Amino acid sequence: MKLATLRTGENGTTAALAMGADTYLPLPATDVGALLADPDWRAIVQATAAAAAAPDSRIVSVSAAELAPLLPRAGKVICCGLNYGDHIQEMGRELPEHPTLFAKYADTLTGPADTIEVHGSARVDWEAELAVVVGSELFRADEDEAQQAIAGYTVANDVSMRDWQSRTLQWFQGKAFDATTPVGPVMVTADNVDGDFEVRGYVNGELVQSGNTGTLVFGPARLLSYISQFTILRPGDLVLTGTPGGVGMGMTPPRFLNDGDVLATEIDGIGRLENQFRIHAPVPANA
Rank of each mutant, 00 (worst) to 15 (best):
I267R: 07
L263H: 06
D196L: 00
G260I: 08
D261V: 13
D158M: 01
L169Y: 09
D237I: 00
T189N: 00
E127G: 00
S225W: 10
V133M: 01
E266C: 10
Q165I: 05
F197W: 12
V247Q: 08
T154S: 02
Q165P: 10
T168D: 15
G246S: 02
L233T: 11
G214H: 04
L224A: 11
V183N: 08
D144E: 07
T180N: 07
I267H: 07
A264I: 06
A151M: 07
A131D: 06
V247M: 14
F230T: 15
A141M: 07
T215I: 02
R162M: 13
Q173T: 01
G219F: 01
T265W: 05
R167Q: 15
G135L: 04
K175N: 05
G236Q: 10
I267K: 07
G246R: 02
A151V: 06
R255Q: 13
A221N: 06
E198F: 00
A176K: 12
Y226F: 15
W126T: 03
P254K: 13
I270N: 04
L233W: 10
R140I: 08
G242A: 02
T252N: 14
D237E: 02
A128K: 00
V132R: 01
D178R: 12
T265P: 05
L240Y: 01
V183Y: 06
I270E: 02
N192D: 15
G260Q: 14
V132W: 04
T243C: 11
G269E: 01
G245H: 08
V199Y: 01
W164F: 13
V134R: 05
G211Y: 02
G260N: 11
G211D: 04
